[in-house]
Write a protein that binds this DNA or RNA. Sequence first.
DNA 1: AAAGATCGTTAACGACTGGAATGGTTCAAG
DNA 2: CTTGAACCATTCCAGTCGTTAACGATCTTT
Lengths: 164, 164
Amino acid sequence: MTQDRINGDRAPSTLAFLLSQVGIHASRRFAELIAAVDLNPPLFRILNLVDAAEGESQQAIGAAIDVPASRMVALVDELEHRGLVERRPDPTDRRVRALYLTRKGRQTLARGRKIAREHEQALTRGLAPADRKRLLKLLQKMVDEQAIGKGVHPGLSDSKPLRN
Amino acid sequence: MTQDRINGDRAPSTLAFLLSQVGIHASRRFAELIAAVDLNPPLFRILNLVDAAEGESQQAIGAAIDVPASRMVALVDELEHRGLVERRPDPTDRRVRALYLTRKGRQTLARGRKIAREHEQALTRGLAPADRKRLLKLLQKMVDEQAIGKGVHPGLSDSKPLRN
DNA sequence: AAAGATCGTTAACGACTGGAATGGTTCAAG
DNA sequence: CTTGAACCATTCCAGTCGTTAACGATCTTT
């Protein structure tokens, strides 16, 4: 095979670039793994949010992860069709569709979380515990200073092949 | 404004999640900045590659960053239309379109690199030099162990608003 | 010389998103 | 009360992108 004679790595590899590479890799990989329970990152994220705050409105949850209302509809539809989440009328506001997890939803969420943990391990495999801790702190610091949103990022929902 | 009563951050914030957040943020932000010279990440990436290996074929360069041949066409078209890159016939293989930077291409590349440096600084602002170094090493280690490709990731080409 | 790869290109299809417009509903002001 | 602004959920639509498949031209291997 024609070796990649082209030097794709000769660059000093800036932090910004590395961060992008690793971050996107992490996302993609997670998307692949979470597909095992028929979820994609946004869906999984929503399940988590609903669990953390049951009874909230779609938009409230959408706002928490920067997902526009119009998109939330389809996402929640999906979740509801699969019987993972329920839309119930809000007793105090008839406009609102309060979200609740179903028993099945909790099960799926639990399985998803397990996958997330495994992903975490796989990703940090090769890093000593001390390193992990350090990395965590450094990243946390960056997030704090960069005012990085906590949204679900569009375009990373599906698990692209990711040859590897 | 209705405070986001929903706890979007109560999660232990795993390394995987943080990495995704930060990485995607870095990509998005860079896309915004590089737009100042009318480039998007893939285009900038290609410019860099061509500079590093002038005279290479489109596909060779595409392979180096995991961009399929069919996509390279449009990308290089764009670059060529703007007069940043030239397609020249390859003296030894008439199928090949060897790529070369134009004077203007070099100028734009230089400007893009400056932007990249500024982005790097902005991103790591708040991190002590020692921290930066450590972070760099840790990430590098992860990349090595994860066999992460050096591709340009689809879906992150344009600069979405990224409220902030 | 023939068959099988390879390069660049084009066309077609499908996937995904966000914005605008629409009922129904609530809330605040007068 | 009554009226208008703000708000929730939903539908529709349009623009963006990227991937696959097929194609001619050209090289290479046998």
